[in-house]
Computed example of a mutant assay.
Amino acid sequence: MKIVGLSGSITGSKTRTAMDCTIKRMIDNNPNAEVTLLDLKDYDIQFSDGRNYLEYDGDTGYVVETIMAADIVIIGTPIFQASIPAPLKNIFDLLPENAFLNKIVGLIVTAGSAKHFLVAEQQIKPILSYMKAHIVQTYVFIEEQDFYQKKITNDDVLLRIDRLVEDIVVLAEAFHTIREEKEAEYGF
């Protein structure tokens, strides 16, 4: 099972802190999985210009090809100005329309206040649905007050991260089993 964590911002530290925690828990619970964390801060990503994702090279090619090869994608995003950051939207634009077909996608959302809670519902989930993702419906929303010195200090948030990790894997295994059974029906 290939799992990719995507920290979808080039500024700030809270989303990366949340993604580090999530990826650590994913590795601890699934030691045989191949887990990769892509932090957009670490890459020089080109703007989408409509080309096929396979035509990009360098950092851009690496990031989009890594996402396309994944079975599971965990997207971490901050909310800025009641919206997702442009670097994350650019990643969505670089990928093909059916990029998340047969992939399980989970969300970690960080925000300055509870006022941004519905951004995931109104902006991110529709994009992921359009791109054919199997979305884990409950996402982890983390507010500014849940962090202290680059650590998550709210035990409830940590429990929700554990639950998200569990739900992602259970859903991935269920869909894998269903697909195998369906393919076996064809008999060739």
Results as ranks from 00 to 15, higher is better:
D44Y: 11
E97L: 12
Y56W: 06
G76T: 02
D59K: 03
A69E: 09
V64C: 01
A82G: 15
K89N: 15
M68W: 01
I45E: 00
D42F: 08
D49K: 10
F47K: 09
D93H: 09
Y53S: 03
F80S: 10
I79W: 00
N98P: 13
I75R: 00
I84G: 03
A69Q: 10
I84W: 00
A33T: 11
I74W: 01
I75V: 13
D28P: 10
T36H: 08
D71I: 08
I67C: 02
D59M: 02
P78C: 04
A33Y: 08
V35Y: 06
D42K: 14
D28V: 06
Q81M: 13
N98V: 12
V63Q: 04
N30G: 03
A69W: 05
A82F: 14
D20A: 03
F47R: 09
K24N: 14
C21Q: 12
V63D: 00
L38F: 02
C21W: 01
N90R: 13
G58P: 01
G76P: 01
N98H: 12
R25D: 08
A70S: 07
R25L: 14
I23W: 04
G58K: 04
L95P: 06
N90D: 10
V64H: 00
N29T: 15
L40S: 00
T22A: 07
Y56Q: 04
A86G: 15
E55L: 12
L40V: 05
L101N: 14
A33E: 11
A69K: 14
E65S: 13
D71G: 11
A99K: 05
T36R: 10
R25I: 13
D49Y: 11
Y62P: 05
A70I: 08
D20L: 04
Q46E: 14
L40T: 06
K41C: 05
L40N: 02
S48I: 13
M26T: 09
N32D: 13
N52H: 09
D39R: 05
V35E: 08
D59N: 11
I72L: 12
E97Q: 13
E65R: 13
Q81I: 13
K24Q: 15
F92Q: 08
Q81T: 13
R25H: 11
S48N: 12
S48V: 11
L37Q: 04
A99G: 10
Y62C: 00
